[in-house]
Nucleic acid binder design. Structure first.
Lengths: 159, 159
DNA sequence: CAAGATTGAGGATTCAATCTTT
DNA sequence: AAAGATTGAATCCTCAATCTTG
């Protein structure tokens, strides 16, 4: 019985590897970004006022603080994100998506959706997708990291 | 509809991050190994004669050839793996698990299974686990990377 | 020349230490 | 002192180039 669980875990790992590999190729050719970098832009795009604190971004993506500092460095370099600190508390740094960043999200998300469909959705029925989400949600809830906004964000409508 | 797929993909990514983080901590404290390193030992442990070619290991874990070279370097350094080339074709290098490596697998796999159960299985019914595996298998099959031995290997029995 | 493996250089991420603001 | 962010050193991984054997 425990072997079934181990196998399921291995399957999650393998699936993530396979799909991610497909997405990386598409996304790199299309926008010159890594999936992680696009995820940051997507989170900012969906956030209130298009901005989030560095520490909240790190927590959302489960990266270290320093990892997020460098990731945002790259996005700033590309002009897709800008930094600023609010006057009310100068300890905080916000990452804010720029017009250029919004444009990248608009242009890339459709292609990205197609790539996900190609590598994953195309092989699944609607029931499969629902079943998958149901089980994964249980795991996330069990680990105290389910959060409606975190795990099923409202993605930007196409275009 | 496509949003459901995107959300499902995000959930896979998040689940992998959450569970992996839990496993890393346990495994590091327990055996001083990363999950990837233990996976190599587990694959070798289950393989015929306890050995696999470098290139097949790389393919199994979806790592680059050079990445696998370095990973095996570390395991050799620790004494858990040894390299050798067959006389029949000196181009090939086999990684073979050593007695020490077998011991590590024996000692670690129980704890590893417990950790997987803690982070994942504990929150799921048997039906959930089966449903999860069924859907993930579809995705892997759809991408041409389902392989009975690759994706549901016969793990060593406890002890 | 092709297959298999390794090496050097460069990119991404983490930990520990540090800096600034509260 | 604590919260938030950044920096330096070290680790792990990848790509391109190279080496060896067939």
């Amino acid at each position: 019985v425990q072997n079934e669980q181990l196998a399921a875990w291995l399957n999650i790992v393998q699936t993530q590897r396979v799909v991610l590999e497909a997405l990386e190729a598409t996304l790199q050719a299309n926008a010159g970004l890594s999936p992680t970098e696009l995820e940051v832009l997507g989170r900012l795009d969906g956030a209130d006022q298009g901005r989030l604190r560095m520490i909240d971004l790190a927590s959302l993506l489960m990266l270290s603080k320093s990892g997020m500092t460098r990731l945002v460095d790259r996005l700033v370099e590309l002009g897709h994100v800008a930094r600023f600190s609010p006057a009310s508390d100068r300890r905080i740094v916000y990452a804010r998506i720029t017009t250029s960043g919004r444009a990248v999200v608009s242009r890339s998300f459709d292609r990205y959706g197609e790539a996900v469909d190609d590598a994953m959705g195309r092989h699944l029925s609607d029931r499969d997708v629902r079943a998958l989400r149901r089980v994964l949600r249980k795991i996330l809830e069990g680990n105290g990291c389910w959060d409606e906004e975190r795990c099923s964000p409202r993605f930007r409508a196409a275009g």
